[in-house]
Each structure stands twice: as structure tokens, then as C-alpha cells.
Amino acid sequence: MTSPLLELREVTKRFGGLVAVDRLSVHVDEGESLGLIGPNGAGKTTAFGILMGEQRPDSGRVFFRGEDVTRVPTHRRVARGIARTYQIPRPFGEMTVLDNIRVGMMPDSVRRLLTERPPEGADREIVRNVGFGEREAAMYPGQLSMGELRKLELARTLATGPEVLLLDEVFAGLTRGEIAQLSELLCEERRRGMTSILVSHDLRSLSPLVDRVVVMSFGAVIAEGGFDEVLGNPLVQEAYLGQA
């Protein structure tokens, strides 16, 4: 049996008295697209933070390709192939779209940063792949719409050469047109074999993009399976709508 590509095993994270993630076990297999859903405060973003090494779990382990990476710092996890976007986009505000993407392509070596020139053409290829034109490439994040900011975040994440993408609230604040455009991009990545975990409150937009769904509530998994299956689960309905 092959091990999952990325896995949280029995992970707990507390913030003072609040248990944000409670003995959480989630995994994603290679090439799979996993939806991670749940009401506000369910612990989805904390789970992403732990997967990326931005937050250290109080207990439990994180595995990537079967290797324990719990204590591996964020930048090394990115080098191994884990990358994320943020719920609120975090572009480098004083850099153009193209320069933002170039940061994602930088080697993690001061010597190489000093001596090597950026790879010709690869940056513009990513720009084109996410649907930006030359005009947008020269723009600053402050001039972009929320949809374009999300595309920029995705582009910078793709520039790191990931094997697994963690996409946090990827449709938040977008118009229907922007959602359709971004969904098409994600479908394209999926066709290329990209593994991904998507967090979204927009279940309608999420459903065609995922193979499997994990539902979280109060830091723990309450349901898992196909989209229709989990949405019909009374525990899930209770978590979203409250007890009747």
C-alpha cells in the first residue's frame, strides 16, 4: 500500500484554552483533489498552517511522502513541493505582478541569488498560464481586483514548483465570472496531475473541483466522503445549520 502524499496524523493545536485542531487526521493522495470544508472556526486554516510549518502542533505528526516533516521549516517544505495560498491574499505590494511571481521562482541560496540570473521566459509562462497579459504583468497589486489578486497568489505559488497545492478560501470575495475563470485554472492544474487541498465556503463552486470532501467542526473531522454523501450527513447539516 502506498502512503498518502501529505498527511496530518492525530494533530492537536491549542491557542490558550481554545482547541483549534483536535486530534485531526487528514490525508491527500497523489493526484487527488481534496475539499476541506466546515463552518467558521472549524480549524481549516490552522490545519493549513500546520501543514505548511507556519504553526507547530502541540501533538501529532505531519508526513509528506511518508517522511515525518513535523519539524521541517516552511521554506524547506516549499522546496519539497508543498505550497499554499492565503485566505487574504498576501502579495508583495511594492512589486509588480511579474516581480511577485519571480520571488516564487527564487532559489533558496544567497550565493545563487547573487550570481545567477532569473530563468528567461519561465516567469512569463506562468503569467500567461494564469491568464495575465503583459499589461497586468507590469501592474502593482494595489491596481488589481480581488480575482486578479487571487490569480497572482496562485501564480506565485505555482512558481515554487509545487507537488501539492493548499488553497485557502480560494473563491472568497470573487464575482461569479472570476470564480468561473479561477475554477478553469484549477481544473487545468488538476488535469496536469496536481494534488490539491481546497478550503472554501462556496460549496457549489467547490464541488466540481474535488474528488473527496472532509468536513471539520470544532477542530475535528465529522464526516468524509463524496460531496453529496457528506452534505446529506445529519452531523454536517447540524454543524452548518445548527440543531433544529
Binding site: M52, E54, P73, T74, H75, R76, V78, A79, A83, R84, Y86, R90, P91, F92, G93, E94, M95, D99, R102, V103, G104, M106, D108, V110, L113, L114, T115, E116, P118, R156, T157, A159, T160
Partner: peptide
Amino acid sequence: TRVGAALAALRMDEGAVAASGLST
């Protein structure tokens, strides 16, 4: 060089620099 750009990015958002695969 690209070191200058990396340092500028560090000033703007250190977390995003780490998430871009660079050791802050």
C-alpha cells in the same frame, strides 16, 4: 541582484517570503 528583491520582499511580508520557499 535578486538578493535585493528578496530582502525587499522580506520587508513587505516575511511570512509570504517563507511561503515562497526562501529561508528568511
